[in-house]
């Protein structure tokens, strides 16, 4: 069965320049009207169609907006085309173009998320109900892949910390684990045992509570396309991309460190922490530099920053830890 992939016509996609101008304009209007009409976007209502516009707030004065500017880095956000056609999402195949080619067949509605483990509130929730308590906001984060390439991406979502508070983890909850959907009929990559399916990831609870950890439902102000992890994914901007699990169906609060897919597949190459760290090379390649996708062809390479440039915000989490051991 071939399923047509819902594509947004190129004419419908706002070019980054216009997009960011429009946003600056909105932010200006927001300041002028003292947040009357556009204010906080309120409860997140996520329309079903991938690529449809989202309602969210953006505050230019927000410190999060300033996070993106790091010294020595080209911080121009990547285009919609680049972000949606260059993906590592092995559930749809191991080539970078496989996800954009095959993810259209994934049905993201209805979608349920099961929450369990060491928390006061547990159960299974339909996506709409699950997302209801959160106001959406935009965050432009650097995204650094363990393969030593990077992008800058304007995500839309809400802080993971808010989600955690909703489910009231108990004092025994030391970690939070996530699981991706397992549906080989719509995820052809799962028919091949390249990795142990379903994909699993996890964070220490204090990492998860850090304000930068973000749950994503949108991209460039639109509903997240399937190839980027729709309908709900995690973004942990100071860690390598594989920590930022996609298409989440299960969240589990645990007392012990959960198993994670890549560290299971190659424990000497991928650790549980997977913090971006230019001083700890991958056993087979250096992590000291990265190639920024879309940068001028002869100047793509740039220095990789400690914690992907977010050291000020997250370094406290790893005080006293040997990051060569806990890579």
């Amino acid at each position: 069965m071939t399923v047509r992939i819902p594509r947004i016509a190129p004419s419908e996609i706002t070019p980054p320049e216009t997009y960011f101008n429009r946003r600056a304009f909105l932010a200006g209007a927001l300041a002028a009207s003292a947040g009357a009409a556009l204010g906080r976007a309120g409860a997140a209502v996520v329309p079903a169609a991938a690529g449809a516009p989202l309602v969210y707030s953006y505050d230019a004065a927000d410190s999060v907006g300033a996070l993106v500017h790091a010294p020595g880095q080209d911080e121009k956000p990547n285009s919609w085309e680049q972000i949606t056609h260059y993906n590592n999402y092995y559930e749809f195949g191991t080539s970078k173009s496989d996800p954009s080619e095959y993810a259209g067949q994934l049905q993201t509605r209805p979608w349920n998320i099961a929450v369990g483990g060491e928390a006061e509130v547990t159960g299974s929730f339909p996506l709409e109900k699950f997302l209801n308590p959160y106001a959406l906001e935009e965050r432009i984060y650097r995204f650094r892949c363990v393969e030593a390439w990077s992008m800058v991406i304007p995500w839309v979502g809400f802080p993971l910390a808010q989600l955690l508070k909703q489910f009231k983890p108990t004092s025994r909850a030391k970690y939070v684990a996530f699981e991706t959907l397992y549906r080989p009929s719509q995820m052809p990559g799962q028919r091949v045992p390249i990795l142990q399916w379903p994909y699993r990831e996890g964070l220490r609870i204090d990492e998860a509570m850090n304000p930068l950890a973000f749950m994503v439902v949108g991209l460039y102000g639109r509903v997240l396309p399937n190839q980027n992890g729709a309908p709900l994914r995690l973004i942990v901007p100071w860690k390598y991309g594989f920590k930022s699990i996609k298409a989440i169906v299960r969240i589990l609060f645990t007392e012990t460190q959960p198993l994670t897919t890549w560290s299971q597949a190659a424990p000497n190459e991928y650790g549980f922490y997977a913090n971006v760290n230019p001083h700890v090379p991958h056993p087979r390649w250096s992590q000291a530099t990265e190639r920024r996708i879309g940068a001028p062809l002869f100047h793509e390479r740039q220095a990789t920053l400690m914690f992907n440039g977010y050291a000020k915000e997250v370094a406290y989490l790893y005080k006293g830890m040997n990051l060569h051991t806990y890579f």
Binding site: K96, W149, R291, L297
Partner: peptide, 10 residues
């Protein structure tokens, strides 16, 4: 009618 690759270098 070829589409340019996102990551030219790779």
């Amino acid at each position: 009618g070829f589409t340019p690759p996102v990551d030219v270098v790779k």
